[in-house]
């Protein structure tokens, strides 16, 4: 029998391996349909990882929103724009250097973090036990995440709804109406015509 701890590490390592492979495949591929599909796979794998990290609410939101809605939106955009990525003429040396330096700095930063899963890390000992203790008494909701989201931090959720509302209005303003006057070339032509008219007059 393997211990639950070992099993958890094996599952984590397996999911991370798949995630890294998927991410590298996204870097390599230039066919946008494959890229978008792999982005959906990445989201689904990360949802699996969230389950193994005890974040079930986050997992199903990520599966629905990340693997579902955003894949649909990207496929729609792809159908309206282009299917193939053109080869970039720029050398990848500078971006690679920037990423390696940033990554090295971040990894150096994690060395000071408390070990993964430690129960006496500062993040576990501050207000979280208080929320866990007060939730059943004050709200009666068994799911603590729901209680915090809807009850204790309800205004944050209202703010989040405002963000979505703003985004929907912005998307409608960009795509919703007035499809005729959008072409840059046509507007440029119109400006030329106006100028010619001005010259004649």
């Amino acid at each position: 029998m393997i211990s639950p701890d070992t099993a958890a590490i094996v599952i984590d390592a397996l999911l991370f391996t798949f995630l890294v492979i998927t991410a590298l495949a996204i870097v390599q591929l230039r066919h946008l349909f494959a890229v978008v599909m792999l982005a959906g796979v990445f989201s689904l794998l990360s949802a699996g990882l969230f389950v193994s990290l005890d974040a079930v609410d986050v997992a199903f939101t990520e599966a629905a929103v990340g693997a579902g809605i955003s894949t649909v939106l990207m496929l729609g955009t792809m159908a309206l724009t282009a299917r193939e990525e053109k080869k970039s003429p720029h050398p990848i040396f500078l971006p690679l250097l920037v990423c390696l330096v940033t990554g090295a700095a971040l990894i150096y930063g994690t060395l000071d973090m408390p070990p993964f899963g430690s129960p006496d890390a500062p993040v576990q000992t501050h207000v979280a036990p208080d929320y866990i203790a007060r939730t059943p008494v004050e709200t009666g909701v068994p799911n603590i995440v729901t209680a915090v989201l809807a009850s204790y931090r309800g205004y944050d959720t209202l703010g989040e709804t405002t963000v979505i509302f703003t985004a929907v209005i912005a998307v409608l303003m960009l795509l919703g109406w007035d499809t005729k006057n959008r072409s840059l070339a046509r507007n440029a032509r119109r400006r030329e015509e106006d100028r010619e008219k001005g010259d004649e007059a």
Binding site: A55, E62, V65, G66, L73, M74, A128, Y131, I164, V171
Partner: peptide, 26 residues
């Protein structure tokens, strides 16, 4: 119980993330 507060924060972040993605795609 694992800490529920990062979960709440990230739930909000996922939804805000899809809003910004939709705007970028538009």
């Amino acid at each position: 119980y694992s800490n529920p507060l990062p979960h709440v924060l990230i739930l909000t972040a996922i939804v805000v993330g899809i809003a910004t993605t939709a705007l970028a795609l538009a």
